[in-house]
Design a protein around this nucleic acid. Structure first.
Length: 437
RNA sequence: UCCGCAGUAGCUCAAUGGCAGAGCAUCCGGCUGUUAACCGGAGGGUUGUAAGUUCGAGUCUUACCUGCGGAGCCA
């Protein structure tokens, strides 16, 4: 019997269909029961009249627990009383596998319990909605870049050296002669592919061995990193702006139902359209200091540092669009950043701070082009130059201005969904103290 | 790593230093339109671990374990 999916029911009103799924919830009275069936595309309420089916089947259905696997045959009927607008008048059913004592009940649970049962938690309505939004964010990312002339050229996951700091690397003992690490960014490799293809991106997992315990951190997360040859800082900012706007528009267009489940204020997403406000680091510092004088911020921010989480929240709170802060002190940024010709102390980097306290969703900028300058920086940061030989070749052979950025998929998804913690935006989160399931 | 909070039934939580409790879930029974259905009944406990104070500790003290929130760091 051909399977019909719940999200297609509107095309089958009046027809007999076969649904295959799991029991989401069950209510029953003496001669009538209302099993709700879930099949991954939606949830539909079924109506079973005792007199419409056999005695054996009635008894079998009566004893079913939540998440029992079930095939149901019946007629589709539009009904205002049903959540979702459609109901199935059941004529026959088959119990594929009965279940009892499903751990996650339709009541409240704590985070630890739910995370221990993450493999089951994904079946719930809210988690289902979040992962669907994540899927759409990723699809939008790929469509935007593919349609904009970018070529996917993924970077390796095993790397011989740090890309940025060395303290946050996961070491792998496998390769005979040298230590290997899990990648924390595909950035350096992107610069090589950008010189080959012009506009490239990589998209994959990144690993940070940070002892971070906040709602914005995972030890394993997914990152998309576009890189463009001949791009300046302004080009990078323009690209970020179009990129984020495209993602928000796509989520609004295709995930309306899910945003409703998540009770997301969609006006916040509709506001994400170009142009985004752009703020020079110096002006951001001034705002923070004025905020301190007015008593809105506890500690006074001094020029030269990187913004802390409360600083970011304060700044982005002034706008209802993502805020682009550019030209940070070079001392707090990565070694490969290009310098501002007007003030060599400043790096041509940009952080895009999402509104509503979601923090930095994009970090990027223009890369340094001079061989001598990079050698100097590598020595200054006490990095092993031999590991960067191939990277320096990019400056030896046809070095041009170029730039790009990285965006964390989970942070972006959390922002789109309007949820508190990014641990819910990836099917199986890896965090400090969380390796299972 | 640092600061703060928490750990009691499968789950969410109560319990002045004095008999270990409720709702949900589970099991049994009832109900022909339920929306986290409802009504009646039953089973379910080494109060995170170890020590200490006390006639008596879920409750007070110390250490440890686990988790949560935040900071730093970052996307």
């Amino acid at each position: 019997m051909k399977q019909t999916y719940i999200n297609e029911l509107s095309q089958h009103v009046g027809a007999e269909v076969t649904l295959k799924g799991w029991l989401y919830n069950m209510r029953s009275s003496g001669k009538l029961m209302f099993p709700q069936l879930r099949d991954g595309t939606g949830i539909v309420q079924c109506v079973v009249l005792k007199k419409a089916i056999s005695e054996e089947l009635w008894e079998a259905l009566k004893g079913l627990g939540q998440e029992s696997a079930l095939i149901v045959r019946g007629t589709v009927r539009a009904d205002e009383r049903a959540p979702g607008g459609y109901e199935i008048d059941v004529s026959d059913a088959e119990v594929v596998s009965p279940t009892h004592d499903y751990p996650i009940t339709p009541k409240e649970h704590g985070t630890e319990f739910l995370m221990d049962h993450r493999h089951l938690w994904l079946r719930s309505r809210r988690q289902h909605a979040i992962i669907k939004v994540r899927h759409t964010v990723i699809k939008a990312v790929r469509d935007f870049l593919d349609n904009d002339g970018f070529t996917l050229a993924d970077s390796p996951i095993f790397t011989p050296a740090a890309c940025e700091g060395t303290t946050t690397l996961f070491e792998v003992n496998y390769f005979d002669d040298e230590k290997a690490y899990l990648t924390q960014s595909g950035q350096l490799y992107n610069e090589a592919t950008a010189a080959a293809f012009g506009k490239t991106y990589c998209f994959g997992p990144a690993f940070r061995a940070e002892k971070s315990k906040t709602r914005r951190h995972l030890t394993e997360f997914w990152m998309v990193e576009p890189e463009v040859a001949y791009a300046t800082l302004d080009d990078v900012m323009n690209l970020s702006e179009r990129f984020l706007s495209y993602i928000a528009a796509r989520v609004l267009d295709q995930r309306g139902e899910e945003l409703k489940v998540l009770e997301r204020d969609t006006a916040k997403l509709e506001a994400i359209v170009p142009p985004f406000p752009r703020l020079h680091y110096n002006d951001a510092v001034r705002m923070l200091q004025e905020g301190h004088e007015r008593g809105e911020i506890e500690t006074r921010f001094e020029w030269g540092g990187d913004f802390g989480s409360p600083d970011e929240t304060y700044l982005s709170g002034k706008y209802d669009k993502p805020l682009m802060v550019h030209r940070y002190p070079a001392a707090v940024k990565a070694f490969y950043m290009a310098r501002d010709t007007e003030n060599p102390e400043l790096a041509l980097g940009v952080d895009v701070l999402a509104p509503e306290g979601y923090g930095e969703v994009i970090g990027g900028g223009e890369r340094a082009t001079s061989l001598d300058f990079l050698r100097e920086q590598i020595a200054l940061h006490q990095l092993p130059e031999e590991s960067f030989d191939w990277y320096l070749d990019l400056r030896r052979y046809g070095s041009v201005p170029h730039g790009g950025f990285g965006m964390g998929i989970e942070r972006c998804t959390a922002w789109m969904c309007g949820i508190e913690h990014i641990r819910e935006t990836i099917p199986f989160p890896r965090m400090l103290y969380r390796l299972k399931p």
